[in-house]
């Protein structure tokens, strides 16, 4: 797909990968609908980038998602690209023997992660895919997964949510492929973002880096490059590209 003049949606666009992706897509000539729950950070992003339009939205709220998708379609035109990037990482073992008050993985943390990472992706995809199909747009849905989809120690909810994302992504590739709509995942390893540093203690991050073949964390632009490649290559669907420095081998 040629990105120029397409309408692209990026969720979680106010920081990290999402922000970098919104900027990269706009620089390639797309009109970008930037979705996030943080309206102030979105305003900063759009203030300096003409082709990026802010749509404050909580992806865990399916009514809000349906409304925002309808607005984007009305205001910006046919949606060709959906990047499901909004996500939360929480580092919680199933049992924390050191925590007297809450030894078992908290239910609220499980629900919080699943709501954004799994439900949010599902709500966005069903709404955006409906528009793509109705308009017969040969669009693409890119879901940001993680190497955690294979099951990272200490990350029950996060791993489960990303495994769900990869499974849903494959289902959509099979279902929507006949209309020329593609769906696939990018699975980053440990990348140097504020999200990584907020969720992981330094010592835990250092241990992950030790297990990474390239012995470093990745850079945001390395993830962006993989997403752009997935958008542009029309014969890629139902697959997951790992951008993890060899951590998953």
């Amino acid at each position: 797909m040629n990105i120029e003049q397409k309408v692209a949606i990026v969720t979680g666009a106010a920081s990290g990968f999402g922000k970098a992706l919104a900027i990269a897509l706009s620089q390639r000539g797309a009109t970008v609908a930037a979705l996030d729950i943080d309206p102030h950070a979105l305003a900063n992003l759009t203030a300096t980038n003409q082709n990026i339009v802010a749509f404050p939205c909580d992806v865990t709220n399916h009514e809000q998602v349906d409304q925002v998708i309808a607005h984007i379609d009305d205001e910006l035109g046919d949606i060709s690209i959906l990047i499901n990037n909004a996500g939360l990482m929480r580092n919680t073992p199933l049992l924390n023997l050191l925590d007297r008050n809450e030894r078992k993985h908290s239910i609220s943390s499980w629900r919080e992660v699943m709501a954004v990472n799994q439900d949010g992706v599902f709500f966005m995809a069903r709404s955006a895919a409906e528009k793509m199909l109705d308009k017969r747009v040969k669009g693409v849905i890119i879901n940001i997964s993680s190497i955690a989809a294979k099951g990272n120690i200490g990350q029950t909810a996060y791993s489960a949510s990303k495994a769900a994302v990869e499974a849903m992504s494959n289902v959509w590739a099979k279902e929507l492929g006949r209309f020329g709509i593609r769906s696939m995942c990018i699975a980053p390893g440990f990348i140097d973002t504020s999200g990584t540093h907020d969720a992981l203690e330094d010592k835990m991050l250092a241990r992950w880096v030790e297990q990474t073949s390239l012995r470093r964390t990745g850079k945001i632009n390395e993830v962006v490059a993989a997403v752009i490649c997935a958008v542009e290559n029309d014969f890629m669907t139902g697959t997951t590209i790992a951008v993890d420095g060899g951590l998953s081998i």
Binding site: G154, E201, K203
Partner: peptide, 13 residues
């Protein structure tokens, strides 16, 4: 201790 967290605590025990 750099390596001591809730997961290595399980190894320790």
């Amino acid at each position: 201790v750099a390596n001591w967290d809730s997961l290595t605590h399980m190894d320790l025990i």
